[in-house]
Nucleic acid binder design. Sequence first.
DNA 1: CTGCATGATATTGTCGACAATTTGTAATGA
DNA 2: TCATTACAAATTGTCGACAATATCATGCAG
Lengths: 225, 225
Amino acid sequence: MQSPIWRDPVTAADRVLLEIQKAIVEGQIAPGSKISEPELAKRYDLSRAPLREALARLERCHLIERTPNAGARVVKLSVAGLVSLYQLRETLEGLACRLAAEHMSDDEIAQVQELLDQHLSTQRVREGESYYQEAGDVDFHYRIILGSKNPYLINLLCDELYFLVRMYRVQLGMNGPRVSRAFDEHKAIINAIANRDGELADLLMRRHIGASRRNIENHFKQQGN
Amino acid sequence: MQSPIWRDPVTAADRVLLEIQKAIVEGQIAPGSKISEPELAKRYDLSRAPLREALARLERCHLIERTPNAGARVVKLSVAGLVSLYQLRETLEGLACRLAAEHMSDDEIAQVQELLDQHLSTQRVREGESYYQEAGDVDFHYRIILGSKNPYLINLLCDELYFLVRMYRVQLGMNGPRVSRAFDEHKAIINAIANRDGELADLLMRRHIGASRRNIENHFKQQGN
DNA sequence: CTGCATGATATTGTCGACAATTTGTAATGA
DNA sequence: TCATTACAAATTGTCGACAATATCATGCAG
């Protein structure tokens, strides 16, 4: 990935972007709170120029919202926002599946299957440890998306939507009874791709993400907010 | 629309963004050419700060590509790029149709139908005048997209993909024998939405855009490049 | 003659200060 | 008491200059 978000940071703006991004996703900067440029510049010890560059990129991943001459605020999480976001994700990752079934090499597919087997074993060992679960999930989806070989789609899912999705998961404390089920679903998806059945992979992926959405949606309502 | 692209320009960065955007879309700044910050700053008579803000937004609509410490280049048009872009568009505007069928009010739907009738009559009068055709087409798609009521989808299609789509159409000189057929297709789509048949509207929209893509694709190959 | 190191030039990244605009506050009048 | 206005403070937008990096040309060794 060569995007300004995933490349290793070469510029001051890159570095501060990663830090603020993490702080927002993990809720250390509260949703809805105002972003003060002077304050952050002082906090991260740089001038406002690279900071503003970072803010522009944060707006690009929908983590903040800016209004001219009035500054930026961290996004608020809401059920409506979650639904809108996941509607997009379902469709886009479904498309990724169809394209992956067409464009992934047998080798690449085999690697993903291998990856899943690895995850399954380590997962059994570290049962319930949600970090590994999430990392594995991210890795799986990531590979399918790259497999689509569509640069716009890749950019969209990995750069512009990924962090907001992650923010919902992190801040609503997704661990999960869904873990083992998710593994089976992943397996079914990659198998469909291996059989070059894009239609089926698309359907399974949309269901997979739909289930995930309902899961988060429940946590949301349960946990108030 | 409140996005930094469609709001009327309040800041210097806004203004220069519109100018450069237009220049790139219309090919006055050649595809593949390097963007020189000092040169553009002098040309548009402002400092590099707002210019760089504008460049960040141009990157966001995929009109330029930046590499750290090395500057920006205008994107090149290619068949592969066109296909990738339209794959996305088909899926996304298909989704917009499904959502629009669910969320548009009867009033909003009636307004679009009215709009189409107006376009049909003015179009007969100004036969072949591609500007009006395109404006009408844009307007139609625009309304459906807004009708989806999904802010992420709206932002994506209207802000981040719209200008690149337009660049392909403009630079490959799309006028068209497809004009009258497109009107029929629009009519069919809004009728499906009026019947609350999201599935059908989705299908028809994907076909509509697919036909458009093949059309441009032919021009591309014909015209070399 | 080709390939690589070296240095001059130009471009991008960053800084601190100033200008323009908004936000918050207090005073005024109804 | 409430609304409105004027003013003060703070924040964002813009500027010009400097530092860090890349690009290009030149010269040298093989």
